[in-house]
Design a binder for these strands. Structure first.
Lengths: 204, 204
DNA sequence: AGCCTAAGCGGAATCGGTTCCGGTTACAAG
DNA sequence: CTTGTAACCGGAACCGATTCCGCTTAGGCT
């Protein structure tokens, strides 16, 4: 009988990570040249010189590829609110952190709107995969700090929902939507939740 | 030269509306029997005894078919908040109408969650087609009544966004989400916006 | 009743995402 | 260096949505 060592997690093979890089480069090139609409799996595979099967092995699906293209900025953002300098990171009072977090999320979403629309559109629940739950936990935690008597998980969803990429993209098309306007609107909601820094006790 | 009457809008041909009915019946049957996942265009066409081209001619696309299946209840809902009895319809003070509208929307969304998920998922912006803009205008108008100094179009989006079918469906899966909880959460947001009936002037 | 044509119709073809699988290969162990 | 095998690979096959297009027909008109 073999020794059943606990599923040793060997690291990615050299050819595999080489292909990963080729695919990401090809995909980024296509997006830069012709926009996200032109980003089909078959075309990326062809441009990268690999088979489509390889794309799926590395990235799972179309949405996974989109997230991978966003990954670097995403890491920066996550690191910033998890362990970066205040007020986005730890150290600032919760209301300030909530506000900083939402404002930063608006910027980050606007920056990569097209890719996010694609990523969130792939499958019905793609949006709630990856980073969403992290944002949700983070926000709910900050809110709970402030207003323990409220349903903070719901409030966190309610604050994140208006930042869904497809909604913002839709409103942007119709002109007259700016990051500042979204931030101001969020501030308005936050003021109502008593997170504007008034320091009132939570009992509402 | 022909008389150029302004593009006379002839009404739907008899065979066409007969097919529309057959298609809707077939689709409803499939959904009832095997759920929305089983609702593919080809299968509906086969069950209805028509070609797929006919489905597209009548309903535009998958999302259109889903909306058509929902249509009857949708009409009732729209009529209720546009011209039905208060507080949902006209006559009640704006704060009460806002609250009644959102609560009713929660119920209606929960009722047909699966079909709505399908309808809103078909294309990236499907959600913002059909009824969404109507809801948005209605809600923004009521809010403007209350708080003219605020960005009511944004607030309307912010109140509607947490009711997106995919989000509710996702939270429902994880258990622990009820219509009551959603309504309570919305009430909480509304209280913060000063629509709880306190009658404070708008100036914030 | 017969004509004319816009409106409809069916279903093959197309398109893009995703899955499958028989054949390769990196690389750890001996 | 040889070997064993898990991880990979490529690309054909599959699947469902959507488009296309040549043929048919309802129904207004004479």
């Amino acid at each position: 009988m073999k020794k059943d060592v606990v599923t040793k997690p060997r690291r990615e093979r050299a050819d595999a990570s080489r292909n990963r890089a080729k695919i990401l480069a090809a995909a980024a090139g296509i997006v830069a040249a012709r926009g996200v609409e032109a980003l089909s799996m078959a075309e990326v595979a062809a441009a990268a010189g690999v088979g489509v099967g390889t794309l799926y092995r590395r990235f799972g699906d179309r949405s996974g590829l989109a997230y991978a293209l966003i990954d670097e900025r995403e890491r920066q953002f996550q690191q910033a609110f998890l362990e970066g300098p205040a007020p986005l990171g730890p150290g600032a009072p919760a209301p300030a952190r909530v506000r900083a977090f939402l404002h930063a999320l608006v910027d980050r979403t606007m920056d990569q709107l097209d890719l996010l629309v694609m990523a969130e559109t792939a499958s019905p629940f793609a949006r709630f995969g990856g980073a969403y739950e992290l944002y949700h936990r983070h926000l709910a935690m900050l809110l709970a700090h402030l207003r323990p008597a409220h349903d903070t998980p719901f409030l966190a969803d309610a604050l994140l929902a208006p930042l869904a990429a497809p909604l913002l993209a839709h409103r942007l098309r119709g002109g007259a939507l700016t990051p500042e306007r979204v931030k101001a609107g969020l501030d308005d909601l936050l003021a109502g939740l008593g997170t504007a820094g008034e320091g009132r006790p939570a009992q509402g």
